[in-house]
């Protein structure tokens, strides 16, 4: 099978359909955001509301990714992810809000707990 044929095989194309659909719905929101923003005054109440919605969405997503993840993290227990998150927060504040230290501590704690079981 030459290179071009392997691109046309169903093994290659079936996931491409999934990726295409995902990219289309994702871009839809971004494009719509650009279109709508042209008609919105940044000093208006509705703009302040959209800002609140954006931050609430982000916080909701992040909390959900930590506490109830989909993907490989779902294999771990809640106490392991919560424990690693608490360690990350503790190091972050103890190092006067050092992002790198906080994030590294959290990830290392998670890897160790995944290996050795909850601390």
């Amino acid at each position: 099978m030459n290179g071009l044929d392997s691109f046309l095989s169903s093994d290659f194309m079936a996931p491409m359909a999934a990726l295409g659909v995902a990219a289309a719905v994702t871009y839809f929101w971004r494009g719509l955001g650009v279109a709508v923003s042209g008609k919105m005054d940044k000093d208006s109440a509705i703009f302040r509301w959209v800002t609140c919605v954006a931050y609430a969405l982000l916080a909701g997503l992040i909390a959900r990714m930590i506490l109830l993840p989909i993907g490989p993290l779902a294999e771990l227990g809640l106490e392991q992810r919560a424990g690693a998150t608490i360690i990350s927060l503790a190091v972050f504040f103890l190092t006067r809000k050092n992002l790198l230290a906080g994030v590294t501590a959290g990830a290392v704690a998670l890897v160790l707990m995944a290996r050795l079981g909850p601390l």
Binding site: T26, R30, G33, F47, A54, L57, L61
Partner: peptide, 14 residues
């Protein structure tokens, strides 16, 4: 994916 990424619209507007 559309519902997960709906945040991108308010983020873009902001």
């Amino acid at each position: 994916v559309g519902l997960i990424n709906c945040r991108l619209m308010p983020m873009t507007i902001v």
